[in-house]
Computed example of a mutant assay.
Amino acid sequence: MDLPIVVGVDGSEPSLRAADWAADEAALRGVPLRLVYASLWERYEGESLAEDVDKPSEQVLAEDIVRAAAERARRRQPGVGISTDVLPEEPEYALVREGRGACALVLGTRGRSGIVETLLGSVSLAVAAHADCPVIVVRPGNDNHVRAGAHRRVVVGVGEQGADSAALRFAVEEARLRRASLDAVRAWRRPAHETTDHPLLAGEPARLHEQHAAEVLDRALKETPADVDLHRRTVEGPARRVLLNASREADLLVVGARRNQAHLGLQLGRVAHALLHHCACAVAVVPERA
């Protein structure tokens, strides 16, 4: 049985954009779509029940939300099998658990309580930091058409994992499914202590670091399938800035995040954290095992 795409919905505009994206992604992969609403409404409503219905009013609202989102997804992708669920749980925990049986989780930037939509909400941030599957966060401004994206380009940040990188494998598959080009980007920096004022040596440290970045790219990409329209780039600068700039001409940016099972805190590096908050396109955070 194919694992579904799971999307968290709550009736907000960001979550509806995420549901649109998830429906397209499910159609592209040929897998089911599962829409989930999670909330601890009983904590806030106690025994308050909706009129004529023996349920808490927030639960009634949640069921209406997932029903409407499912109808919207069916209109968008009639061939996708769709299931829904309403869970009386903290959304962070519920969605992370749902991710254990999903091929990917799709989320919006913020829910109904969000104030500044362009910054990532706490639920999406927590899920991206702890999920066992890739988490795609749909950013504001996305055209929400997975196959016919505005740029037809997937960007992946290449780290030290090389060809063993789960993020790279995910990016390759996304580019193939979308029939998009794949930009593999490796950022590099010259350490400050290696700078020199000598005119004959000034360029040598930079050349060596750029050469190392190119070698890392070559090793990582040596097994990339021939049918992928691959472009490789080494760019000087902090990885956060380099990838944020690359996101301006991409439909999806893929980055890896290392997971340490012994660590219970927020498991996102500075690069992934910055991209989730400020990226110009959708971001996929893919777990990399430590």
Rank of each mutant, 00 (worst) to 15 (best):
K55G: 03
L177I: 04
A22Q: 11
A290L: 01
D218E: 15
V123K: 03
E210Y: 00
E51W: 00
P238A: 09
A239E: 02
R139V: 14
E90R: 13
V127R: 12
A104I: 11
V185T: 06
A246E: 15
R232H: 02
E13I: 01
Q161M: 06
R186N: 13
V283P: 12
N142M: 12
D10R: 04
A246F: 02
L177W: 01
A22G: 09
R110C: 13
E288K: 01
P134G: 02
S181P: 02
I115A: 12
L35Y: 07
E25Y: 08
V172N: 06
A290M: 06
H263Q: 14
R259S: 07
H263V: 13
L40P: 07
T118Q: 14
R219P: 09
L168N: 02
W41L: 06
P91Q: 10
P140I: 14
P32N: 01
R152T: 06
V6R: 06
E215L: 05
G265L: 07
R72A: 15
V7T: 10
E174K: 02
A282L: 05
A22N: 05
R75I: 02
A23V: 06
A187V: 03
R186V: 09
R67I: 01
R178I: 09
V235Y: 00
A290Q: 07
R189K: 11
L3T: 13
V286D: 09
V31T: 15
A163T: 12
V123S: 04
A239F: 02
N144A: 09
A272L: 07
V255F: 01
V53P: 12
S83L: 00
D10N: 13
P56A: 10
R270C: 06
R240I: 07
A284S: 06
P88L: 00
R186I: 04
A274Q: 08
V6C: 04
H151R: 02
R178M: 05
Q77F: 01
D54E: 14
L200F: 00
V36L: 00
V155E: 13
E47L: 07
D164Q: 15
R233D: 13
A257T: 13
S181C: 10
A274H: 05
A104P: 12
G269K: 08
S12D: 11
A274I: 03
L221E: 14
V172Y: 02
L268W: 01
P238L: 11
L268M: 00
R75N: 10
H263T: 14
H212S: 14
D229F: 02
V31C: 11
A23K: 12
V123A: 05
R176H: 09
P191R: 00
